[in-house]
Amino acid sequence: MALLEVKDLKVRVEEREILHGLSLTVNEGEVHAIMGPNGSGKSTLSHVIAGKPGYEVTDGQILFKGEDLLEMDPEERAAKGVFLAFQYPVEIPGVATMTFLRTALNAQRKARGESEYSTPDFLKKVREVSKSLNIPQDMLKRGVNVGFSGGEKKRNEVLQMALFEPALCILDEMDSGLDIDALRIAADGVNALRTPKRAMVVITHYQRLLNYIIPDFVHVMSRGRVVKSGDKQLALELEESGYAQFEEAA
């Protein structure tokens, strides 16, 4: 059974159809890259999988571990292992990052019927992960993403990914706004999380990120559809020839 199965998905936003019958199958342990020009519907797909309100699914289905994902509340999807690293992580003033991490982790564990982490266990875990991501402890005392640089925000997303141990990670434009060094740290963090079980969907406009996170499969999206799929070679071809050929095909 596939981990994630998106079948003929049609999605509307404010009466306008954005995804026109999109299909995608992701198995455990696979890394899929989704590439495509701006406005092709990449973020829309990630939002619908995560359950963001405001999208109307008019046709098709999404199965996660064989279960109907669209029937679940977004927090339920999170607890079941769907993680979305946002392109623009929000700021939450007054809520210390540490408090946020703990609240979220315990909410997920509670939803799964697991016991909450004890304070020492939790702290140990956070210290380990934040160290490997080069996140200083005082950053964890600050409000969630408040005053964080672009790189720090993205590392904070990876930190959460490492803590929550999701089955499926969707990374939306993780490279946007990052310089090469920041990108490398974040990508290393992501690579460290690759396991034979965990799957990743890496959304990106540019091929650059895929030099650091090497995908098993590459899909090209255009105007709300997957128009071509292949292996990592496809990303390199795109780098050379651009998206224009697909714009016409769509």
């Binding site: 963001k52 509340d73 999170a78 929000v90 979220a104 909410a107």
Partner: peptide
Amino acid sequence: EDVLFYCIQRGLS
């Protein structure tokens, strides 16, 4: 709305 969804995506009701 975005802040709320961010929290909910992380497992909060």
